[in-house]
Design a protein around this nucleic acid. Structure first.
Lengths: 211, 211, 211, 211
DNA sequence: AGTTAATCGAGACGGTACGTCACGTCTTTGC
DNA sequence: GCAAAGACGTGACGTACCGTCTCGATTAACT
């Protein structure tokens, strides 16, 4: 086999086994708190470091930018609340009634979009992702894709049950539920309510159902 | 009615009649060019001023922020290209075939989303609008609403022609065409193509049409 | 006449006519005070800026380093105290008695070397000059040379009066008065006192006088 | 009297019997090399450790500062070259001709002051000693005093031989030879040459000799 | 020879200061 | 009399070293 000499002679790459778990936690907490309190643009690396009681270099050693820190912090927050939520958290309900199931999930999403603990950081990350494609793709892959896959699974089940036309591509169909809500939220193009998401589901399923 | 002198004792309020048209143009051009060339975050007020051959104060006198400058510049760009486009710019095609009409408009939108002259500044503004609600609302009102109204008009006409169920709310229905595309573009959640927008229209209209 | 286009395309070179005199004074004062209070190594550009109520950039705009600031500050201090001292401050006494004249001047020098207002900054500058040849030469030229010239003048007068052998080079002879004192002071090689400098003069003049 | 174990409860005081000789050598070499290559201010403890292939703590365990390391390294360099020089290193020539003897020694000093292997580190140490009195005194005691004592010895011999007036204090007289040269070198106040030191000796001895 | 304890290379850590960049305000100068 | 030019106080950037603090892995002295 060929030699596997390292390929980046520039920076020595820190030794992650020696990493301070305490500092990481403190940095996550500080970053999330600051974003919520003062907003993303006024959140600075210096501020995070100071609040976390940590040297700036400790941040730059492990992350490349403010956005990077915040993304990991947010991901960690998600994992944390999931761990708290119990052992079988993430499945899409399947009662047989597609409309009701989707409406339920969307209502939960609406709740989350309104919780400032989630709203402010997600908004900040989403904004960053709009402009920074690499970070945007990471966000999608790590934060959104898991949920989207659940939608796809549920829609496939509905197709098997004959409730959705078989020629429909579930990866596109799910956008009818998610994208309008996402856009209203992201761009403030309209109010967000249970009534609205329910309507969305009704209109959309009408088009997906067999005639 | 009497004169309506505004009453701001704080700042002398610049006299807009004396404003230099040449400077304004130069600032617009510089702002757009810089955003396209180096990206929004690296575009600075100082850079715009230098490139426009203008004092910084001349920018701060008339605009409140980098985002503000860029928004006006972008609006101006829109008006300009519309003026160039000739005397009949702002109507939604109505050939009687709703699907074809919408597909055509969406294909034009796809083209625009891919033109870097438009893409980079719009992305920058959209990102800013995600985080800055006030600017976001302004963006929607000034840049998006006119187009949305055209969709609404066309959908109403389709309802009158019996091609769309009368109980459908056109302001929600239009989101089935626009939001999935918008989200794919904004969040890089998927590829954008004529085929994609065509499929969107087909799926959506299936749900809107009377049974 | 030939064109006189600027030759440094790199940095725009600040406009010294717009320079803030108040800031300069504040910076000089802060630099000298800090050096005396906390010593040269613990004096930082940041500290000077903070104490002077000035932005760091204002320092870096006009000086290239901490040592540079301190040198100008010290020079300014010298000019200032000279201006205060009256209109004809800087002449070497010439009573006809060379030994007495030189002893008097050296005693004044001893006094100055012990005044902390002068001692700490001069020591710092001297140290810097030992290692940084360019700054060292500047120091010698601006701070020491004027005094040395006065010695040379007095020695020449003594030669004319037949008190010093004519073949003696005054530029070397003066080092017998100055260098031992300088070295004792700089390198802490011995105590400094009037008695010491008097002895120096006696020994040295013995060698300079005609037989 | 009883044992005189020092009482420092704070630090366990490293056990010098276990000290790694190899590391010490490597640190000396690295320190001297770096000072010559990049100059004293750009020489860092981190750099010395890296170049010596040694942990930073190994430096801080045995030395208190960069200057401290450099001083020991330089002292060691001196001892080393003396050991190489053979068994009769440390005597002042005494041919009976005081002028010739002193001129010879000063010429050797001039040579040394120009050898970069010595010049750069000595300059750095001298500069440090100017500002840091404690280190300055150490330097004088360890590096200069031995040589000075030799001068004193030679001058005493000259007094015994009637070549120097008996009331002259040799500790002051020697400064006429050494200080002017030292100052020229330290402060770049003038060129250094054999001719110069020869002149110095001539002028000075003229003053020291009996009439 | 095996045990034990200190030193060793390594480098992450909380900090401080660096020198640079851009901010938004304020002042001077020239057209 | 406005606007270009740009100096100013401010504050964050990302980097370099500081001196301290763990980590195994030697390594040398003492059972």
């Amino acid at each position: 086999m060929a030699a596997q000499k390292s390929t980046q002679p520039a920076k020595p790459a820190p030794d992650s086994t020696r990493r301070s778990e305490k500092s990481r936690r403190a940095i996550y907490d500080a970053a999330l708190a600051l974003v919520v309190e003062v907003g993303y643009p006024k959140t600075t690396v210096e501020g995070i470091a100071a609040r976390a009681g940590v040297g700036k270099q400790t941040i730059y050693r492990w992350w490349s930018s403010k956005a990077d820190v915040l993304m990991e912090a947010f991901l960690d927050l998600g994992e944390q609340s999931m761990r708290e939520a119990g052992p079988v958290p993430y499945v899409f309900p399947d009662t047989g009634d597609l409309a009701a199931d989707v409406k339920g999930v969307l209502r939960a999403t609406v709740d989350q979009l309104r919780d400032p603990r989630f709203e402010v950081p997600s908004r900040a990350l989403a904004a960053e992702g709009v402009v920074n494609e690499q970070l945007g793709r990471e966000l999608v892959a790590k934060l959104m894709q898991p949920s989207l896959d659940l939608y796809i699974g549920r829609l496939r089940a509905a197709q098997d049950a004959g409730q959705v036309r078989p020629e429909i591509d579930p990866r596109i169909a799910l956008e009818f539920f998610i994208s309008p809500l996402a856009q209203r939220w992201l761009q403030h193009t309209g109010p967000i309510s249970y009534e609205y998401t329910d309507t969305l589901v009704d209109y959309a399923l009408h088009g997906l159902a067999p005639r």
